[in-house]
Design a protein around this nucleic acid. Sequence first.
RNA 1: AUGGAAUGUCGGAUGACUACGUUUUCCGCAAGGAAUGCGAGGAAAGUCCGAACACCCUGUGUGUCGCAAGGCACACGGAAAAAGGAAAGCCGUUAACGACGGCCAGGCAUAAGAAUCAGGCAUCGAGGCGUUGGAGAAAUUCGCGCUUUGGCUCCGGACUCAAAACCUAGGGAAAGUACCACAGAGACAAUACUAUCCCACGUCGCUCCUCACGGAGCUAUGGGGGAGAAACGUGAAAAGUGACGCGAUGUCCGUAAGGGCUACGCGUUUCGUCUCGCGGUAACGCGAUGACGUGGCAAACCCUUUCCGGUGCAAGAACAAAUUUGGUAGUUCGCUAGAGCCCCGAAGCAAUUCAGGGACCAGAGAGAUUGUCAUCUCGUCCGAUUUAACGUCGGACCAGACAAAAUUCGGCUUACAGACAUUUCCAUGGAC
RNA 2: GGGCCGUUAGCGCAGUUGGUAGCGCGUUUCCAUGGCAUGGAAAAGGUCAUCGGUUCGAAUCCGAUACGGUCCA
Length: 112
Amino acid sequence: MLPKSHRLHLDKDIKTLFAKGKGVFDVCAGFKYRRNGLSESRFAVVVGLKVSKSAVVRNRVRRIIREIIRLRLDQIKPGFDVMMLVRKEAIGKTFAELEQHIVTGFKKGGLL
RNA sequence: AUGGAAUGUCGGAUGACUACGUUUUCCGCAAGGAAUGCGAGGAAAGUCCGAACACCCUGUGUGUCGCAAGGCACACGGAAAAAGGAAAGCCGUUAACGACGGCCAGGCAUAAGAAUCAGGCAUCGAGGCGUUGGAGAAAUUCGCGCUUUGGCUCCGGACUCAAAACCUAGGGAAAGUACCACAGAGACAAUACUAUCCCACGUCGCUCCUCACGGAGCUAUGGGGGAGAAACGUGAAAAGUGACGCGAUGUCCGUAAGGGCUACGCGUUUCGUCUCGCGGUAACGCGAUGACGUGGCAAACCCUUUCCGGUGCAAGAACAAAUUUGGUAGUUCGCUAGAGCCCCGAAGCAAUUCAGGGACCAGAGAGAUUGUCAUCUCGUCCGAUUUAACGUCGGACCAGACAAAAUUCGGCUUACAGACAUUUCCAUGGAC
RNA sequence: GGGCCGUUAGCGCAGUUGGUAGCGCGUUUCCAUGGCAUGGAAAAGGUCAUCGGUUCGAAUCCGAUACGGUCCA
């Protein structure tokens, strides 16, 4: 789990991010990002009901992605709101496989 | 012994680094930091029921404010009425329940067995007739054929009674309404409609008599009255319980004596309902006497009895920006010491209750309980050894099922790799 | 957390007081045309989502389950 200062949890922040943020998408996961004007970057991970019906599967994917972000907090540029959007193909992937996808995605978006 | 069913218990362990949530302690003015402990389930799931708790509504009473209308506070309650919903054998358990326990009734529902009935190239016995058979002097006896009849025999059949386990939304059909397809005369107090026949009447047409009005006859047709195949059969169900006995005035066989069959009546008994007595807390059971004989369906409407005020932690309480009040965003509380858990004892057939002791055992909020590994067992697969199995050795995969709290409990339902235990039941094999 | 609805032929849908499961499109075969389309004739295709119950009889009534959809805040 991320420290509280790095979590994106207010409803209005999420809505503006959805409306105005830029997106980068991949086979198994994508993300939207936007400058927030703060000194820290904030993250949210979304795994919808359409990805899997089982709460166990959804939680497993969410935890792995959060851990990937946590290990690179010092490398990611500060001052962004980021929302990870997970797709069906992420189910069953290991830690190393997901890491590759997300790191290349972040480089593409200019966050790394 | 193996496999299955039922019930119950469990459903990885230890360690390293790391992240997050949180308890306690310490440091710090504060922000925060350090140490330490704890951190998903038997179903956390589905949401089919029930409660706790909170607020609202409403009734009554008391107090208080007000000139009054009325307001406010507290206490007790959800009465009555309407609508809607729920429950439904009895007794108990429970905070409550549609849950649970025990019992009753019915089903399963028949089997084994028993009673009764009808039967048989079965079998055993008895009688009658015949006999050109055998034995004997004869009475008689043995045999053969036909026939009648009997049975604590045998065989299969019909009907009734009839166990455990298991299952049951298990009040009322004698308050009323509706429905019961097809078939059938008729589906609940039924006999219709119709072929056919008879009776009287009307109408059209034809023939005959009459100058004509009109009359007679015949055919066809119409509606009315009566007879009628007719209770066989149909159907899931048919006017009402099934069985046995006795008796024709009916009918059949017979020359007759007599015998068979059936209707109907009477009698006995079974079933059901009512009444009475006894037993049981009760559901109900047993018995008696007399009367009666009522189709099914209420998981169709309905009737009877009992219960339910509404909304739900997104309830609600406090603080409270931009923006003064109110309130919104937001923050905090509600939020985990509990109808809870473990151990032991007592009461009770049991559900369960009571007493004693012990520990503190998740509390998130876009939602923590992690990520990466190591070791060990369990398990799965492969190979070798072995007739085979067990076992042993080696190798590979390496915890691998269903599934994750969201106010909290009690049930129910559903999902579940594998392991263990129990007793009963079932199947197969082995031993005695 | 709570409320409501649906599941019938390959697809879209009917099916009333419980009594022989239907319609349209599609599919297959035949006719018609030199051939295709249109047209005409015929046929096949159903565990009525699953399981259990009530009933003489269930797509229909009742209960449970599965899957799908939708609404409230």
